[in-house]
Amino acid sequence: MSHTVIAAVDGSAESLAAAEWAAREARIRRLPLHILHVWQDWSPAFAHAPFTGVDTTPGEGATTTQQWAQRVSRDAADRLREGHPGLEITVEQVNGRPAEVLLSAAEKAEILVVGSRGLGSVAGFLAGSVSLPVIAHAERPVVVVRAGERAEDELRPGSGDDGDHKGQYRDVVLGLDLSRPCDELLAYAFEAAAARAATLRVVHGWSVPVVDGYDPAAADPGHGVALGLREAGTLTDVLRSWRGKFPQVEVKEQCMVGRPAGHLAEASKDASLLVVGRRIRRAAIGAHIGPVTHAVLHHVRTPVAVVPHL
């Protein structure tokens, strides 16, 4: 399933919105779409059996849960085929622990798309404990989509939609930490903007360092101005080679003082996609998301792409 967009569905409104977003993403990237539904058998026999993560194909005598699992993924695929004729769509039902199955699937995906249960919380599939571990531990990009997200929300007002979703896309916004800019994050953002023929708006938030309780900018405003010019120059330098690789992408740089999460939340209000990074940490304990990414996942309505990097 390499070079495939995978959408995890569970029949909820948020997972169906995620599947619809995944279909549009697969179309503009010219990739196949794979619909994945994970169902977990809570019968005593399964509870005492080791997790294998293998596919199960319900046959004669299938349980109600198995039959429901088949219907969820089949109905989702049928709707997407009707709305996106010509898109290659495959369907899979897997019996297992949802977080483990989705993490395994993400290893083979170009992008894994999951749903989120509304403003103020990041909840998952079948259980609220699923999506956060997937976002925190997947080593491929994971896109989080809110319930109610629509194709027209990604388009500029008045740009039109001729039925093939060819209106003009709103900006793609990238949150960039200049202390550790990484190729994986920049590549994803530029590719997403190029696929949409959209402007890439790169947002970098920075703060004047305070040493021993002393704020040099407060005593000398010129100090803050000089640091701002230095940060802006560094941002331009980091983006220079990427502009050369993607000459078709218009890039806007925003270098601002203050908390990055607040700037990204504001910038995302008129964006089609927000792209943020997550450092890969393989320790078993901890959320491994980072404060900025964690904040935007909780407070941003725009689809959020979380790109892991070293």
Rank of each mutant, 00 (worst) to 15 (best):
V144F: 01
V144R: 06
V145H: 08
V145Q: 05
V145P: 13
R146G: 09
A147G: 15
A147N: 12
G148N: 02
E149H: 08
E149Q: 09
R150G: 06
R150E: 06
R150S: 11
A151E: 13
E152Y: 05
E152A: 15
D153Q: 10
D153I: 03
D153L: 04
E154I: 00
E154S: 11
E154P: 04
L155G: 12
L155S: 12
L155W: 08
L155A: 10
R156A: 10
R156W: 07
P157D: 13
P157W: 00
P157C: 09
G158D: 08
S159F: 04
S159P: 13
D161L: 10
D161E: 11
D161F: 02
D162F: 04
D162G: 08
D162S: 09
D162M: 09
D164Q: 15
D164W: 13
D164Y: 03
D164L: 15
H165K: 02
K166S: 15
K166A: 14
G167F: 00
Q168N: 03
Q168W: 11
Y169P: 00
R170V: 01
R170A: 02
R170C: 09
R170W: 03
R170M: 09
R170E: 05
D171K: 08
D171N: 03
D171T: 01
V172N: 03
V173F: 01
L174H: 00
L174S: 01
L174I: 03
L174N: 01
